[in-house]
Amino acid sequence: MLLEARGLGVHFATPRGLLRAVNGVSLEIEAGETLGLVGESGCGKSTLGRAIMRLVPIAEGELLLENQYITRLEGTALKQVRPKVQMVFQDPVSSLNPRRRVGSLVGQPLSVAGWSRRDIADRVAELLAQVSLPKDAMDRYPHEFSGGQRQRIGIARALALSPKLVICDEPVSALDVSVRAQVVNLLKDIQDRLGVGYLFISHDLSVVENVADRLMVMYLGRVVEQGRAADVLARPAHPYTHALLSAAPVANPALARSRQRVVLQGELPSPVNPPSGCTFRTRCPYAEARCAAEAPALRPVGDQHVACHFDFSEGFADATTGVSA
């Protein structure tokens, strides 16, 4: 197994109390595989990514990279595993230093790792070719490139030290449709060629659908559903996943007119003071008394794992109160 997280928790102390940004999250990613991660703003996607990068303190649980515990590594030992996990960010502009040339930006992780100038130059040329940027890009500045090209620069830099796992945090969300497709295709090509694993974070289900082998849905720091992407998307078994899928607009007018839509009522509760029991119950059209009393554990339902007291693997009845068509 390339990456394994067991019951991972990340807590932030805030003025209003302890915020469990990531709460008991377990996941696995194999080499060459993409795990898609979706959920609304603030549900903990980036924090989970940063925890895997060991950039935020882990409060509970374990993290294993290539079957080695990395949860509590520090100093030199941590430095040795760092290159294996890299990150690609949403905003390629602000994550790049505007005063440095592309060659130095892409080569920076290599010089930190002590590579010689000559080797760096060769490797940078190779990386730029891998992301289909012209060789002369090396001597230019980030602002001379379009958004899509800047994202390629970010990807080249992430690949510099041949990582095993790349955390892609909304890598295409800031890009235009036509360019988004270029970058998604590039990420897939790189995976096919190098066998890297991806944790692919996105709030856009249609993008995730196109890249993920498996899919994980988070709500207020917890995993509510997990399974093969095709299964989860075709037969969601958690009411939240069902609502998310139903809310996502489809680029097909006939389908848009004919389908039944679940419009979730209300808003995300405060993560500092989450509802008791199942945290989704305040917006769930199917909630019953039990849901306030007892937090559901992630359990096998149909072909996936679902944290819900009820079994919706046979589908959802749309006539329930709170659900509008």
């Binding site: 270029q182 897939k188 249609s206 489809v250």
Partner: peptide, 22 residues
Amino acid sequence: GATPSGGTAGRHTRLADIPGSV
């Protein structure tokens, strides 16, 4: 072509892209 349209495009379909940029 560059927009996944729901239900049709799985992991193994390649999105059509438009070369270049605006």
